[in-house]
Computed example of a mutant assay.
Amino acid sequence: MFQLKQQDGVGHTSYLCNNHQSCILPRCTEDPYRKKAKTKLAATTKAKATRAALPAPILTQVVNKRRFQRVGETISVQSGDTLELRCRGNPVQWSVPLYLEDDHEGRLKTVQHEKYGVLALVNTSGADTGEFTCYPMFCEDTDCRKEYNKAAKVFVFFPDPQELFVPSSVYYEVVQLRSHWPTVLPCQVTSSQAKVTLHREYPPSEVPVDGAEISFDVKKGFTIHRPRPYHAGEVYCVASLGNLRQSSIKYMLIYVNYPRAPPAPVIQASSSSLTVGDNLRVTCTVMGEQDVAIEITWEYPGQEIGRPLYTQDSVTPMAGANTHQSQSVLLVDEVRNVDQGTYTCTAHNLQGSKSVSTTVKVASKSPKPKAKKPK
């Protein structure tokens, strides 16, 4: 024990210690236990404030009547169990897998409450596997529209011990492989735990999946990122989980050399001003990608009176380039007054069409001067 003795002029207090010697302690010494309690209280207060500042999750799964959990990108609900989702907002609109859009059994129900909407799906099966989306709605009077930027999505798997693939209504599906466009083979499984491989029917072989040329996403299936002619053929998927191994439907892949953009035709007339009896040539030229078909059609003034169409069409490969030139020449022999007007050529490919026009004027022949009679 020590007793207060005196205070000096520099803010220290002298105490009488057990050995009767003077002890100097800081005037503002704080109890370390009290300081620790203050620090803990401040941290707790800050954590509560942070939690309060975070917005409540827009989409949650109702696990039981009193328990909710935030959903991630995917969740699994055992086949036969009930799926119940709650989405914050009033009103909200739901999007469900295609299989459920025409639900005639009453298994799917949505209810709108004051602050949230509820989606409930009972008697679930592997066929229900897919993406469920909640869209908060923005309403002005009676006009409402989806707020796509605030949509909340979750992909739900319904594992089925007997079905590894989502059932399909067809056994065979034709898929078009478009050059420059990724193609998805929707080998959709009912369990995120299933191992899925891609196989070729003939010659029998497993197709390498390297993640670059071909990749797999358990929510989508296999994606061929840049289709090539050698990808064409008949393929199917194989899924395995535990002792169960199953094959999907078969996909017939047909390669189509798809253009990057619609064609860009150029039109030119042999003359923009002619006289009755002259010959006219109107040329339409289109540069296109190799092996991409281009069709050229015409509209011309003589169509209105049934004047027949005469064209010369040609396709010429371009040296040193992976392109070709398609050309159509419209021939009008001995033009008449009815041939005056607008000539339009339209070029079509699988990406679309584009038209260009030119105008031609036709003048009547000047009458020949009469010869003077000799006097």
Results as ranks from 00 to 15, higher is better:
residue 100 L to H: 06
residue 166 V to K: 13
residue 206 E to T: 14
residue 143 D to Q: 09
residue 170 V to S: 09
residue 91 P to L: 04
residue 106 G to N: 08
residue 158 F to V: 05
residue 141 D to F: 04
residue 157 F to I: 13
residue 180 H to F: 07
residue 91 P to N: 04
residue 169 S to G: 01
residue 137 M to T: 01
residue 194 A to S: 15
residue 83 L to Y: 10
residue 84 E to S: 13
residue 198 L to T: 08
residue 178 R to I: 00
residue 168 S to K: 12
residue 167 P to S: 03
residue 92 V to A: 06
residue 88 R to K: 14
residue 145 R to V: 07
residue 178 R to A: 05
residue 153 K to F: 04
residue 196 V to R: 08
residue 132 F to Y: 15
residue 197 T to P: 00
residue 154 V to E: 06
residue 116 Y to A: 15
residue 129 T to S: 11
residue 107 R to T: 08
residue 112 Q to Y: 02
residue 202 Y to R: 12
residue 84 E to D: 02
residue 205 S to P: 00
residue 149 N to Q: 09
residue 164 L to E: 12
residue 190 T to N: 08
residue 132 F to L: 09
residue 165 F to A: 06
residue 108 L to E: 03
residue 133 T to H: 03
residue 116 Y to C: 12
residue 160 D to Q: 06
residue 193 Q to D: 15
residue 157 F to A: 07
residue 98 L to I: 03
residue 81 D to L: 12
residue 110 T to L: 06
residue 162 Q to P: 00
residue 145 R to L: 04
residue 144 C to Y: 01
residue 172 Y to F: 14
residue 80 G to Y: 14
residue 136 P to T: 05
residue 190 T to Y: 07
residue 131 E to N: 09
residue 142 T to K: 08
residue 139 C to N: 05
residue 90 N to Q: 06
residue 88 R to V: 12
residue 162 Q to N: 09
residue 188 Q to P: 00
residue 137 M to N: 05
residue 117 G to N: 11
residue 178 R to E: 09
residue 189 V to K: 02
residue 100 L to E: 08
residue 198 L to H: 07
residue 136 P to D: 02
residue 122 V to H: 12
residue 84 E to I: 11
residue 179 S to G: 05
residue 195 K to N: 12
residue 175 V to L: 12
residue 163 E to R: 15
residue 112 Q to S: 01
residue 142 T to A: 04
residue 173 E to Y: 04
residue 177 L to H: 04
residue 202 Y to N: 15
residue 159 P to M: 13
residue 116 Y to I: 06
residue 137 M to L: 10
residue 93 Q to V: 13
